[in-house]
């Protein structure tokens, strides 16, 4: 049985490909996960000249209510900014910000097919021999993102002053927690008070910040290479230590205590990142950003619960992060603050 979105998507794409005929969409299926966007894979077929052509593509569509509310334009342009660089990303094809075509804004991109993203699979034991290679690639790519010139994205993203990066991010996530929390969060509030009382030094440069660069948001192969970096919906300009801090925050160890991202010791990860980025990770500043990222994580988990509680999105993917991670995030904060 074909998916009801198939003919609507085919009609939209046909309008974007004036040289093509017989444009058709088939095998459209939703990919599991995707709490901030609905993600589907599909096959596009068309005739060009006398030749029949086919391509595997991805549709990313806004849901009715999201775990995180972000502009799809920002995500689309972030992917495009890294096309053809040392940071592997899928090719972006079309962005639609209106709601007429598919009810919600969306974009269409190349599918990087044949690779895995699941952290559970990566850390199952089957890939143990290549985990050092994955770690090397992961923090090298993150270093490349930090090293990149942010100027091409300044048209789409606000460029804060170097000494304002931390405050902008903390203000943003504290406001979301104020709006979304369903119950008091004493550990998180204590962390926020500490962050405000002990601000980090100004950013050493303004960088592109991916915003969600963690194990689970890249595609890996059997040899341990990384073939694609995904989920740029929280990307922005800011302090490069922010991304490093997110990659080191304890919930992303997936139960492998002391292993950043479940892959390497924090010292190893930082050394790889410093080598690739040409930047230094001042330990005190990095500590601030790791704790900040614990607060940010809590903002995301209570936000997913709020989306469910308000009735905007009742999908189970909105419940699981809240149930599984709100307490774990408190534990991570206590660890980072030296209390646990």
């Amino acid at each position: 049985m074909s998916h009801p979105l198939e003919p609507r998507l085919a009609a939209y794409i046909a309008g974007k490909m004036p040289g093509a005929s017989d444009v058709a969409v088939s095998a459209l299926e939703r990919i599991s996960g995707g709490a901030s966007r609905e993600t589907y894979r599909f096959v596009l077929s068309w005739t060009e000249g006398a030749a029949a052509r086919e391509r595997r593509l991805i549709l990313r569509r806004d849901p009715p209510a999201s775990l995180i509310d972000t502009e799809r334009r920002v995500e689309f342009e972030a992917y495009r900014a890294f096309a053809g660089t040392a940071v592997p990303v899928p090719e972006m094809l079309w962005l639609e910000e209106g709601e007429a075509a598919l009810d919600h804004p969306f974009f269409v991109a190349e599918e990087i097919a044949g690779f895995q993203a699941s952290p559970q699979m990566l850390l199952s034991g089957a890939y143990d021999a290549v985990l050092p290679k994955v770690a090397e690639r992961k923090w090298t790519i993150l270093g490349e993102i930090a090293r990149a010139d942010p100027a091409p994205l300044a048209r789409w993203m606000e460029a804060p002053a170097l000494d304002a990066c931390w405050r902008r991010e903390l203000d943003h996530w504290e406001a979301l927690i104020d709006k979304d929390q369903a119950e008091p969060l004493p550990v998180t509030r204590a962390a926020i008070r500490w962050l405000r009382a002990n601000p980090p030094p100004p950013a050493q440069k303004l960088s592109v910040v991916h915003g969600d660069f963690r194990t689970g948001n890249f595609l890996f192969d059997a040899a341990g290479d990384i073939q694609g970096v995904l989920d740029w919906e929280m990307s922005h300009l800011g302090d490069p230590l922010e991304d490093l801090g997110w990659s080191l925050q304890p919930v992303w160890s997936f139960g492998r205590a002391g292993r950043a991202g479940g892959l390497a010791s924090p010292d190893e990860a930082v050394a790889i990142w410093e080598h690739a980025s040409g930047l230094k990770a001042d330990p005190a500043a990095l500590h601030w950003w790791i704790l900040f990222n614990c607060v940010k994580g809590q903002g995301i988990w209570v936000g997913s619960a709020a989306a469910f509680n308000r009735g905007g999105n009742r999908a189970p993917i909105m419940i699981y992060p809240a149930w599984w991670l709100i307490n774990a995030q408190d534990r991570a904060m206590l660890q980072v603050m030296g209390r646990l």
Binding site: F254, G255, A328, L334, R339
Partner: peptide
């Protein structure tokens, strides 16, 4: 207060918690 916050967080820990 910190002692109670640590105790409360431990009470609520899930068996599958990643931290």
């Amino acid at each position: 207060i910190w002692a109670e916050l640590v105790a409360a967080t431990e009470r609520r820990k899930l068996s599958t918690a990643p931290v």
